[in-house]
Nucleic acid binder design. Structure first.
Lengths: 194, 194
DNA sequence: GTCTATATTCTGATAGAC
DNA sequence: GTCTATCAGAATATAGAC
């Protein structure tokens, strides 16, 4: 297909999103200007508006895509015992979030910068993800395998604990990710198993 | 003592800090303007500079004071058994943070908006607080009372889990704070006790 | 101590040439 | 699709009157 001179839409679009992701995570949505994003990409600010109608839509797209990807990747194997499902969830959550530190940071920190409609949509997706873990805990509690007073509270507690790994884990650090996954699984297992 | 007409430094100062705390927590440091803070207090923007040299110092003062207050309040009773110290810490952390949702939010979300020197100072204070819990876990592990592979990791895991309460707990909600403290203490206890 | 007024810089977003 | 140029407004911070 013929292409206009100077056209780079097929590569500039992803580069805009990558730059926004990185800068929003590093400095915060409100602190980053469209000119900064453009500078990182290597275009002028006006060119960004070929890829997003405005700054807010750019943030929302990043958050929504992250949540959709998360929901798409979370392992759900109904036939497994709840304890095996729980272990899979714990290891998945740590691994998935470790691979996307910037997206995780934005997904948790920039909620207040979303317009009401966008916020509501993200909250629905987050609720679906939490429901995966809650179902596992509820099943395990129902069969007497888990000692969980309130599956909803336990869900929030476990997710907060696991997500915290992204705030301190470094690949160059003292521990491997596999080791961290082992330790967290060990703590979660003891906390919920009867 | 004589006082200039229109002088309100003794009450305006705290009001500036209270307004900044509230607005920073709600909208984020970068998204809040000095004019907004002034409007909340009921003065013009220029008047704020009688109480802070600049916006950054205002943020830093809020965070530092919060951390100092936290360190001042955390219960340390060396004579108690580690399990009792741990329970006291868990209940304290939830209770203290619940009473200061805005300060907690800022302390965790606005770190990236601190200048390097200010950031370093806050990190020192945070490290001291984490050290309190780490010491408890290390003592309990040393005496064989706790089953904790890595006290540093367990410290970060427990604090992340407990702090997460502030993101969802509401006084008007289904559960009382005391109930939540009970449930979290139960989970923490099972996760670390041998 | 607070006000008004202002200096200076930056902001998100748009228009039109190429 | 990207550029330059620009609009209209808002940002932090300061100066000087009262």
């Amino acid at each position: 297909m013929a292409r206009t001179i100077g056209s780079h839409s097929d590569i500039t679009g992803p580069r805009v999103r990558a730059a926004a992701l990185r800068l929003f995570a590093r400095h915060g949505y409100a602190a980053v200007s469209m000119r900064q994003i453009a500078g990182e990409v290597g275009v002028q600010a006006g060119a960004l508006y070929n890829y997003t109608p405005d700054k807010q839509s750019l943030l929302f797209a990043l958050m929504r895509d992250h949540m959709v990807e998360l929901l798409d990747a979370v392992p759900i194997i109904d036939t497994d015992a709840p304890i095996d499902q729980l272990q899979a969830f714990v290891r998945f959550h740590i691994g998935f979030h470790h691979a996307r530190p910037d997206a995780v940071f934005i997904a948790y920190m920039e909620l207040r910068n979303l317009e009401a409609r966008n916020f509501a949509e993200i909250e629905v997706l987050r609720g679906r993800y939490e429901a995966v873990l809650e179902r596992i805990l509820r099943d395990g509690a129902g069969s007497g395998m888990f000692d969980v007073v309130d599956p909803k509270i336990a869900t929030l507690a476990v997710i907060a604990m696991l997500t915290g790994v992204t705030t301190w884990f470094r690949d160059e650090g003292r521990l491997s990710l596999a080791n961290v996954q082992d330790q967290y699984w060990n703590m979660v297992r003891k906390a919920v198993v009867a």
